[in-house]
């Protein structure tokens, strides 16, 4: 089985299990303040790390390329409170222009 199939099926099983678990276990178990605090931070650190890695990493190297220009536009758009599609499309457009024409 390829890495793609394993990821597709594995992620589906694990993520469904987590959802079902929440509907099935006593509230006191996962509801502790410490677990909740860590859980609030998890998406923030994981998504932040993904942003950084996908912007600067190329395999095991760090490099600055067209993606950085796209991310700069995304940061500016977010700071100006632009709607989500504008952020994503603005970033894609800038990165594509730099990649194709510079």
């Amino acid at each position: 089985m390829s890495i793609f199939w394993i990821t597709t099926i594995g992620s589906g099983l694990v993520c469904f299990f987590l959802k079902y678990l929440g509907h099935s276990i006593p509230e006191s178990w996962l509801n502790r303040p410490r677990v909740q605090r860590i859980n609030t931070l998890l998406p923030i650190v994981l998504l932040s790390a993904l942003v950084a890695v996908q912007t600067f990493a190329s395999d095991a190297k760090l490099q600055i390329d067209q993606r950085v220009s796209g991310m700069l536009v995304a940061v500016i758009a977010l700071a100006l409170r632009a709607p989500f599609p504008v952020v994503v499309l603005g970033s894609a457009f800038t990165s594509a222009m730099v990649y194709n024409f510079l």
């Binding site: 932040s48 993606r67 991310m71 952020v87 894609a92």
Partner: peptide, 22 residues
């Protein structure tokens, strides 16, 4: 994907998700 900016669109989407919490 790079010619269409997809490689920047994906991290930009992540940043958009995390931004309101920062």
């Amino acid at each position: 994907p790079s010619a269409w900016g997809l490689d920047a669109a994906v991290p930009a989407a992540f940043l958009g998700l995390v931004w309101p919490r920062l």
